[in-house]
Structures are given as structure tokens and as C-alpha cells.
Design a protein around this nucleic acid. Sequence first.
DNA 1: CTAAAGATGTCCT
DNA 2: GGACATCTTTAGA
Length: 203
Amino acid sequence: MHSSGRGTASLTPLKRPFYERDTLRVARELLGKVLVRRLGATLLEGVIVEVEAYRGYDDPASHAYRGPTRRNQVMFGQPGHAYVYFTYGMHYCLNVTTEPAGQPGAVLIRAAQPVNGIERMKKERRTERIKDLANGPAKLTRAFAVTRALNGHDLTLGTELFMAETANSEPLEIVSTRRIGIRVGLDRPWRFFIKGNPFVSRP
DNA sequence: CTAAAGATGTCCT
DNA sequence: GGACATCTTTAGA
């Protein structure tokens, strides 16, 4: 048995119906799921521990609030696709699209607990501290080598990037707070994280 | 066309 | 707690 741990057999990609629902519900249920990135023979895995919901049609903080543009068009398409955008001149952020096609919505993946491929993540992030590998949306994309090339990628295929079901389904204690780094929509407590998890970006 | 802000991270004090 | 890097997108003249 190789020291990297579990094999790939147990990684079942989440299917379309999971994503084709209300954004808030998808956001909550993504907690505890596994983010999987395949880089050739290397497999990176992390448990999603922090997310934020951006429900396009009634959420002034959403990129999609003012209608479709070239950047946000994937938010209006089929659910279960990656929405990757570039910001602050240097960072990428990863979202998964939600809601039925034509209705915009996305969940920002803000933090993950690394469980496999940790040595590769350390190289990508240029740090040895496991806690700091993916405890923030731009740190996470760096650790998992997610760039604009994956924008629009179908997450149900189980290929380069996908979300996977977890073996254990014990109920999680979820905390909700206002979202981070936005100036509008602060009245909505649409940031969700696993209570007490040390890999969240902020408690 | 020009300008300013941005779903951030890092380093500094 | 604050400055700053760095460039795409979007709003406004």
C-alpha cells in the first residue's frame, strides 16, 4: 500500500441534480464533500470546510446580479460547472454553478482540509504549513492548481476537477456568518463553514 | 477611452 | 491593523 493513502475507487463525482437546486442548499451540502483535482498521475484531495453562496438573481453581491457578461456567463449556464474568475490582478477563485440553466447561481469554495497530494500542494503554495495550504479562496486555487483554463469545466465528468461524495455521512455542525470581502449584501448570512474546523480561513 | 474597484494574500509595523 | 502588488472587468465620460 502506497503511503499516499486511499485510492481513487471511492471517489464518486457528485451528479447534476445535486447542483441543480437552490444555491443556499447546495452551499450547505458541499461542506464535508471532497474537492478532487487530477494532475496526470497525481491526485489532490481536500475536504471542503468553508463556502459562500452567491445567488445571482436576488443577491447584489453576486457577479451575476446585473445580468450576463463574458466573465459571468457560466453562472447562467448548466449547473455543476466550474466558474473560475481572476481578481486583484493575481488571484483565481473557484465556484461551482448552481440552480437550473438560465438561472444564475454559484458557490465559492473558500477553504479545504488537505487529505491527499499534500506534498504537491506544498510545492504549489511554496509553504510547508498544511494549515495554510488552502484556508482561503485564492490559496485553495493555488494549492489545487486551478486556473482560468478550468472555467466552464463540467464537474460531473470526474476528470480533471470534480466534487466527490464522502464515505461517512455523519451530520456536521455548520456555522453561518456574513460573507467576506464584499461591500453589499452584508445582511445575508451566506458564508457557511464547519464549526471548529481549523482549516477555515477565519473563525 | 479612462478610471476605479475588486468574492485576496503577504509582508510590514 | 495597514500598505501594496497587479490586471481584468465594469461603469461612466
